[in-house]
């Protein structure tokens, strides 16, 4: 079983479903029980019919489903005990920047295929899933960070980029012997995507990766 079949083959592992899409932005309705697993910068994959859209989380939102809010003055445990189904009345939304897709040959392409459909199931690529991350960051055995272009184009700033780096720091640190190659590819991608942020982003890389 391939790494992708492994992720997409378990319906119960889906963390949400597509709630809307517009341009390069996809809104995901996140199932409440998975909301805490998602972070800004997380990579999500959508199980659409053909190519599978992928993207990086830009925003996470949590609000009342019906637009009203009543203060309770309780701890989280107290609330869970008093109202076990409270999350049914809450809305958990994740906004992702559509940056990539998985093609028919199960190879990650950084670019956009067709839009997903409403209710397509969404899966999280865990920051510990080494093989899946490797396929994403190094498709065809070559480091490729061009997805950052789409990430920035859809509104990511140095702070979202920082979150992204923090999330995958341990993954990248496993490639100490390839750091020059990673850095050069990263710098090239940033220079093309967001040259005005180059200075700030390089500072983040220096600090977080320590290279």
């Amino acid at each position: 079983m391939s790494v992708w079949e492994n992720i997409l083959g378990k319906k119960d592992q889906a963390i949400g479903e597509v709630a809307g899409t517009e341009g390069g932005i996809i809104e995901i309705f996140v199932y409440p029980e998975h909301f805490s697993k998602i972070r800004v910068g997380s990579i999500l994959i959508i199980d659409s019919e053909n190519q599978k859209p992928m993207g990086l989380v830009l925003k996470l939102a949590h609000s009342s489903r019906y637009g009203t809010f009543t203060p309770m003055k309780m701890t989280r445990t107290e609330i869970s005990n008093a109202y076990p189904d409270i999350e049914r009345y809450h809305l958990f939304v994740s906004t992702i920047a559509y940056t990539s897709y998985l093609d028919d040959a199960n190879i990650v392409r950084h670019g956009r295929a067709g839009p997903p459909k409403l209710h397509d199931l969404v899966y999280l690529i865990k920051s510990s899933d080494f093989d899946a991350l490797l396929s994403f960051f190094r498709p065809n055995n070559k480091w490729d960070f061009t997805f950052l272009g789409y990430f920035f184009a859809e509104g990511a700033t140095k702070w979202e980029f920082r979150d992204f780096l923090l999330l995958y720091r341990d993954f990248f640190k496993r490639f100490e012997n390839e750091k020059d190659n990673i850095l050069q590819t990263l710098i090239r991608a940033i220079s093309r995507a967001k040259p005005e942020l180059l200075s700030a982003l390089l500072e983040e890389i220096s600090e977080i990766l320590g290279w």
């Binding site: 750091k179 020059d180 850095l183 050069q184 390089l202 890389i205 220096s206 290279w211």
Partner: peptide, 9 residues
């Protein structure tokens, strides 16, 4: 604030 290695690259 940028490391020498990054500057070099």
């Amino acid at each position: 604030n940028t490391s020498p290695r990054i500057k070099e690259n």
